[in-house]
Simulated assay, not measured.
Amino acid sequence: MASSTPEPATLLERAQSFLSENKRAVLLGTAAALAVGGVAYYAATSSRPRSELDDAEKGPKKDKKKGGKGKKKKTVKDTEGPILEERERPKPNVEDADALPDTPLTAEQIASMSTEERARLAATFKEKGNSAYKERRYAQAAVLYTRAIEVTPKPEPVFYSNRAACYVNMQPPQHALVVEDCDEALKLDSNYVKALNRRAIALEGLDRFEEALRDFTAATILDKFSNQGTAQAVERVLQKLASKKAAEIIATREPRLPSFTFIQAYFAAFRPRAHPTMPENPSTGDQTLLLALQALDAADYAHAVTFAGEAIDQGISWDEGRAEALNLRGTFKYVIHLPSRANCFLSSLHLGS
């Protein structure tokens, strides 16, 4: 059974509290350090690697019989999903396995059973669920774990975690249900590293990267940095979170001009043109347009684009001048919104040749 000593629980609570309060400033740096530090610690202290979720509890070892070798307990692995963990509980009655009720029991039927009967039936449902899971019948296994949850006299975190494993492997994966079940499992056992890992995987699938990073980080700490897969998951989610934040910043950032060198090279690709002839009685907008063209000649691009916009807003009195102002403002908008400065710089050279 999972250890219930207070030290790991305190460590998890401290880790989650600290990460929650410092998500943006400290969490990212801490997670990155864990990704590197975990590998170093792993190399120095671990005698053998473990797969990302291969932390199933093992039962007591049996003494070897005299004159023969002790039988080794086989561990069944699912290469496409997490290993179903085994915890000590009442042994299911083999005869009961084939006599399970075809329909869910009513609340009255469950209440009429003794505690021992309910525990035995829950264990039987769980064993049948394990068999279905190993045969990759995930939907049926999830139903069996659900029925184990319904009849068990004492809530068991393993039932919720195993059902979460079924949801992870369904097509498409039911990430929201995985999170719900792992929440329940962790309420019952706050040190349940498998449930933390499964919830982190589901949160990552839901693009809830900050929460996934929190869980992977906590799992890495609880595993004492010995699980290389979890450390790699921290780095993977950190990269996704950074990309997401960068996209959000770019989407909300106000448009601004590229570098002076880039704009200068862009305009140099075109042949210079004479300024349009000003009318005899220029309007305010006409005079502002002249300021924009003079700023452009002086390579003062920030003032050039500002004056061009102001001239249009103030009103330009003749068509040629208005066309010149619109063309200038449109050119700057095009430069600001170039998807790739390098590619568009080459294109501008081609168009100006």
Rank of each mutant, 00 (worst) to 15 (best):
R253M: 13
R89C: 03
R256W: 07
K128A: 08
T124S: 06
P173W: 01
F260T: 12
D313M: 14
L206K: 05
D96R: 12
A148N: 07
T277R: 08
Y133L: 05
N162W: 03
N327A: 12
E156C: 06
P282N: 01
A40Y: 03
F209T: 02
E57S: 09
S46F: 01
R118G: 07
Q287W: 02
L293K: 00
T10H: 12
A32Y: 10
T288W: 09
G38R: 02
L105P: 12
A142E: 11
A25D: 15
A304L: 05
V76D: 14
I316E: 05
Q109R: 05
L100A: 07
V158G: 01
E86P: 00
V158T: 09
A185T: 09
A122W: 02
L290P: 00
A44T: 15
G37W: 02
K66E: 11
D313A: 15
E52Q: 04
D54P: 00
F216K: 05
A299Q: 14
A139N: 10
A233I: 04
N343F: 11
V234I: 15
K126M: 03
L19I: 14
L105Y: 06
E88A: 11
L34M: 13
S114F: 02
T45G: 01
V36Y: 06
A274T: 00
A304R: 12
D54T: 04
I201L: 12
Q287E: 14
R137K: 15
